[in-house]
Amino acid sequence: MALHPAVSQSMLVARPSRLGLFLGVSVGGHGLLLVFGLLYSHLTAGPRVDLNPPVIKATLVRQGKPRDPKLLPRKEQPPPPPKEVKAPPAPPAEAPKPVEKAAIPVPVAAPQPKPAPQKGEASGEDRRKRLFGAFDRTAKQAEPEELEGAEDGDPDGDSATAEGERYYALLSTQVRRNYDVAKSIPDAERLYLKAQVQMRLGRAGEVLETRLTSSSGNDLFDSAVLTAVKRASPFSPPPDHLRDALQKQGVVLEFRP
């Protein structure tokens, strides 16, 4: 039965159309794709990447004859030299330090040797050392070679140049240095202790607020981590791009033994 053309071409009359099917297939297809994508990424996901770079313990071995491996070990003597060796070169280095500390990375070649020799240590020996230091080092090999790094680097650091968010690394280094925990905490408990401290920092790096947001369940551990933060403060001023975030949301320090 043929319809009247006016009817068959009217826009008001429902006509069989593929639009519904198309929409259905399209939505279904997208959904499937999404599910596939999620499944795929879930199944192929590698081990979770720990964003905290692993710390490599590196110590410089002093010069000397290696100990016969057949002999019994000796206790490491507490290293006596550092204090005495470092004392003389300290005064000239002292002056530029405060400035350098505030401004963060760029390692500045200290242009210090020239300024008037201080009278206390103006001996010829000292002056000679300062002038010909470079020659002396190659000639005598008296001191162990310095590792490359940064002025305010971590002795446990494993990289010569900063990677990741440098300021956060600085925070964690400074806190970890004060991270002392009572030896009486049982070994078994050490495996699962975890405490979180939220802290907000001001423009100058001062601590505005610390809050134990998640307790470990062990009072001694909780007070140890709070003490660590307290002793580590104040921190150096945060860089511009972090200033607001650190003041408003702060940063959460998650402590594990």
């Binding site: 720990d50 905290n52 710390v55 956060y168 925070l171 964690s172 806190v175 970890r176 991270y179 002392d180 925990v181 009572a182 030896k183 905490i185 979180q196 939220q198 140890a224 975030a245 949301q249 702060g250 940063v251 959460v252 320090l253 998650e254 402590f255 594990r256 033994p257």
Partner: peptide, 12 residues
């Protein structure tokens, strides 16, 4: 807030 993990306590 970002979370910084800190471990390696000095047991004393």
């Amino acid at each position: 807030a970002p979370v910084i993990q800190i471990s390696g306590a000095n047991f004393r």
